[in-house]
Design a binder for these strands. Structure first.
Lengths: 291, 291
DNA sequence: ACTTAGTATCGGTAAAAGCGATATGTTTGG
DNA sequence: CCAAACATATCGCTTTTACCGATACTAAGT
């Protein structure tokens, strides 16, 4: 009754568009998928696909079942992932990957505590863009990511929000925007915007283009440098801008419109295969208090 | 691989304490449960139960698997519940059950809108304690509950928080507490407290006894009446106390300690068998904006 | 009309779930 | 200390389910 395989056949059919294609994806023959769907329809006492045309299309009942099927399969995948952690082998080396905009000083504060609890474990830090970090996590390495919240986080990753980092609008002291108070977003469009872009060409979901005239850099310190040199305005995390602002080289643009000053959410990410291991739990626990 | 039945056998064993008892609960024979656990152990590549003694006891690996197994089975149950709503029979009559402390005026504001969308559906309102409402919901009637958040909500119920109701400390004008400003909770212990208790003897999780001298009533209007008559002090929702305060018969005790003035969370509850039906979704949607 | 890609159904095989009987191990209590 | 009571593990056997491959049929494009 409502076996995992039936539901796999169901969502595979929805995603591929046909029973045959679903069968190919699942490595079964078409008749098996057909049967599974039929059994599922009997269990549900409802028709899930409209079969008049060449390709089956979801009925209303099918659409309503789909999210529940997805949820169950996700949970099933999570269970399978977690099982690998049952053997409880504390890895000898774990990596913490930071988005470049995250203040390292905050994160490094936990090193001592972690080493005290797990003295035999080697720690490695690396810096990368959020998207690169998500990419690294696909491989289920013993890696914990600390990134700005992304909209699309794969289902096999566990994540939780641990705080926020404040972003503001900055220009060089010498820049023509520096004197004025921006009353609207339109005044920004008249000047070049300096923006982050990750190494792989995808652009992160939380960076937003405002000006039509854009110049990309691949990390915040380049961005800061470019801003200092007067090439345009940029959003920067407060801790990145802080020093230059103190030195009077950089100015925060006072903003009359609300949205431009915002708190970017910071998430901790771990692969489900790891997130049950004690050392990863401890690490999450420690990271909760750093921001 | 990781079939539903194996996991059912697993949690049944954990909950009943033995394979035999689990088999009895599941309506199977003992050897089947035994086999399921063995297969599960092979799949997990870990021993889940310590079998030295008479009763099997969970190993570490077993304990770590358990929450995942629970989660998957809950999701499975949810799916089975939801399937019954696939036939999409909009019920001809639905009931909205309110905790007595919830302001009816707020809830009744949605009647018009709901009737406009579902003119053929008859509405019924009833008032009961939170625990009684949870009890009613067990039967999967077409019922929506609006209650103060309870700690223990059964897994087959869907719920969401829709806002808060403000509770304060009240006494009659004539009461000896009326003049003074309570500096500490201790001064309250010297007087009789008037408290809610539901019809069934259980006491709700969010009511808290402060004074050793307590008098119970089973709804907020009795409580108000008793308070007005000077029998003691009580926590009352602002909307219940409002009229008597205006009339000068009741006084809100100014509170120097923070915790006594608090926002009670209000939840909407529906049985999973119903929560997917369009009319129940609409109802939830409407209830989100009333507080 | 003919090809292509898909679905439904059938018969047969292999795997899995189920049962009942039995051997064995662990507690409890006389 | 032995026996009764209760558990678990394993075996042979039956039933159910999953799967495959072959075949007949249907929809869509050329």
């Amino acid at each position: 009754m409502f076996g995992i395989e039936q539901l796999q056949a169901f969502v595979a059919t929805v995603e591929t568009g046909s029973f045959s294609a679903a069968a190919r994806r699942l490595g079964k023959v078409q008749s098996v998928v057909s049967q599974h769907i039929m059994n599922l329809e009997i269990d549900c006492n409802a028709t899930l696909f409209e079969r008049s045309g060449r390709y089956p299309t979801l009925t209303n009942a099918g659409s309503r079942l789909l999210p529940h099927a997805h949820a169950l399969l996700n949970q099933h995948q999570r269970l399978k992932n977690s099982v690998q952690a049952l053997s409880d082998i504390t890895p000898s080396e774990i990596t913490i990957a930071l988005d470049e905009g995250i203040p390292f000083k905050a994160v490094s504060s936990i090193i001592g505590e972690l080493q005290q609890i797990y003295p035999q474990v080697t720690l490695e830090f690396l810096s990368a863009s959020s998207l690169d970090i998500i990419d690294l996590l696909k491989k289920a390495l013993p890696l914990t990511g600390v990134i700005f919240s992304e909209l699309n986080i794969p289902t096999y990753l566990d994540y939780e929000c641990i705080g926020t980092v404040c972003f503001d609008l900055y220009v060089a002291k010498s820049h023509s925007l520096s004197g004025q108070t921006s009353k609207s977003i339109d005044s920004l469009r008249l000047h070049r915007q300096l923006l982050i872009r990750s190494k792989n060409t995808q652009t992160s979901s939380f960076q937003l283009k405002i000006s039509p005239d854009i110049l990309y850099a691949d990390n915040y310190f380049l961005l800061l440098e470019l801003t200092l040199q007067g090439h345009g305005w940029s959003f920067l995390p407060a801790h990145v801008a802080h020093e230059a602002v103190q030195a009077g080289e950089l100015v925060k643009l006072p903003m009359e419109f609300e949205k431009m000053h915002w708190q970017a959410n910071v998430d901790v990410l771990q692969h489900q295969k790891n997130s049950d291991l004690p050392i990863f739990k401890t690490l999450r626990q420690l990271l909760r208090n750093i921001l």
